[in-house]
């Protein structure tokens, strides 16, 4: 079956959605991502949607699910590269994507993800006496 590839880069996983996903493919991605987060112990996930010219309520729900699921598995998620026309449409559709962190492009997203993960590592580290 067709699958969206998930790449590992250091502590992070990178997902770049380059095709117009049908629902089954989006659900498969959700499952694969959960599996890969556990397998690789990734601390962050970058989801690039710059190729998507459409995000409907189903795709939005999948993005929200992936973010929530990653958080439960101790990984932060960033969605990057949303097109302006897609953002305008989502607002009118009534989808706020609450709880989803975004960045303009992959480079900014990666920097932000590094910063978030570093901050978390610091606050989780045992205090020196």
């Amino acid at each position: 079956m067709e699958r969206i590839p998930i790449l590992k880069m250091g502590k992070f996983l990178i997902v770049s959605i380059q095709v117009d996903m049908h629902d089954e493919l989006a659900l498969a991605l959700q499952e694969d991502l959960a599996e890969q987060i556990v397998k690789t112990r990734a601390k962050g996930v970058l989801i690039d949607i710059s190729s998507l010219n459409l995000v409907d309520s189903f795709t939005a729900r999948i993005l929200g699910n992936m973010t929530a699921m990653a958080r439960l598995l101790d990984a932060e998620t960033l969605v990057v590269g949303m097109r302006p026309a897609v953002a305008m449409t989502l607002v009118e559709l009534g989808v706020s994507l609450r709880g989803i962190r975004t960045a303009g492009n992959a480079e900014k997203g990666m920097a932000l993800l590094e910063a978030i993960v570093a901050q978390q590592a610091k606050s989780n580290a045992p205090k020196s006496t």
Partner: peptide, 8 residues
């Protein structure tokens, strides 16, 4: 934008 709204 109008394309995207229609298609969505």
């Amino acid at each position: 934008v109008n394309q995207t709204k229609l298609v969505t």
